[in-house]
């Protein structure tokens, strides 16, 4: 097997911001004998990502997702632990690493605010020393996927949020990096643009073989894009594995409510729980059983009403954060 694209082992990051007391005295004291707080943003994070894999890095606010991404992309040096990005240590080999990675930090544009986006792209081309031909070809492909040309003569100042994020995604991919970090790229965008961005990311993974680490709060995005999720809470990995398994392990299971004309025959079907009013309620943990039951019910003529409910991913997350205090070994 190839080297993994991303390898993080025992990452830890402690920030020590200076504490400034209010007032003149406080300012003087902070100059003479500065006091420092200690904030453990990342306590212990390990995971690997294979080439061409997309993982969703999830966790509540303040869990340490952004800090992890900044360490992986080489902006921050970790207090402890090791990172390899395509075999390189990102924060030591920053210039060489720059060609391997692209990044979007949601809502923060890397484009020049008062330059037409196309000129910003050209500046990035110059900074990354991309040849004119390669640049034109890549820009053309990105335009096809993100419909940039309708607004790329505008400056970010005059773009909508959705346009700006699309322009920023293009900016991050113009130098054709095999590894991409996206920290809440779709935050605050409308559904249409979100869908376009999802489609774009799917294409980048499936057709271009890029490795993507994505953080987001949008669970429908996660369920549509990621097969594997890494959950972190309080700076630790609390789950690393498949999304389906996560739903199985932590979900409270499936439930089906069905109203039929004649319910006698259904009371013996496995999974039957109770009768609530006119409805029969079935439930269980095994998704296979759920599928079999749905198939069975849809073939019956007597069914008048059928309601299928699985757990919301959001609920599952909440359960995981509560139950898992200790990290799992994978």
């Amino acid at each position: 097997m190839n080297n993994p694209a991303i390898e993080a082992r025992g990452l830890k990051k402690v920030f020590t911001p200076a504490i400034r007391q209010p007032g003149f005295k406080g300012t003087v004291r902070s100059l003479i004998a500065p006091e420092h707080a200690e904030i453990v943003a990342v306590a212990d994070v390990s995971f690997t990502v294979a080439e061409g894999e997309l993982i969703a890095l999830l966790g509540p606010n303040g869990a340490g997702k952004s800090t992890t991404i900044k360490i992986l992309s080489g902006i921050l040096t970790p207090t402890a632990g090791e990172v390899r990005i395509a075999g390189r240590i990102p924060y030591q080999d920053r210039i060489a690493n720059a060609h391997n990675i692209g990044a979007v930090f949601g809502q923060r544009t890397q484009l020049w605010w008062d330059l037409p986006a196309r000129e910003s792209f050209a500046v990035l081309r110059d900074i990354f020393k991309t040849s004119l031909a390669d640049h034109a070809r890549r820009l053309d492909e990105l335009d096809g996927l993100l419909e940039l040309s309708s607004f790329w003569d505008r400056s970010p100042r005059h773009m909508s949020l959705g346009q700006r994020v699309r322009a920023d995604l293009a900016a991050a991919l113009l130098h054709d990096p095999p590894i991409v970090f996206l920290d809440e790229p779709t935050i605050g965008m409308d559904a249409v643009v979100k869908e376009q961005v999802r489609e774009f990311l799917r294409f980048q993974v499936a057709e271009r073989g890029r490795t993507i680490v994505l953080t987001t709060h949008d669970m429908s995005e996660v369920s549509r894009l990621a097969e594997r999720v890494v959950l972190i809470n309080h700076g630790r990995v609390v789950y690393d594995g498949g999304l389906v398994e996560l739903q199985q392990d932590y979900g409270s299971g499936w439930q089906i409510r069905v109203v039929v004309d004649d319910d006698a025959a259904l009371r013996d079907v496995p999974g039957f729980l109770a009768k609530e009013g006119a409805a029969l309620v079935f439930g269980g943990d095994d998704p296979g059983e759920q599928r079999r039951l749905v198939r069975l019910l849809t073939e019956l003529d007597v069914v008048r009403n059928l309601e299928v409910r699985s757990d919301d991913l959001e609920d599952i997350m909440a359960t995981v954060y509560q139950r898992r205090a200790v990290p799992v070994a994978r």
Binding site: A98, I101, A103, Q110, W113, F128
Partner: peptide, 28 residues
């Protein structure tokens, strides 16, 4: 006016991007 002073980049957190390019921030 163009949100492009060092202070503005630092304040908004956009300075991160300077460290992701194959051009040292101080050279840029």
């Amino acid at each position: 006016i163009a949100e492009d002073t060092v202070a503005q980049h630092v304040r908004e957190g956009r300075i991160s991007y300077w460290f992701l390019r194959p051009l040292e921030p101080r050279h840029y």
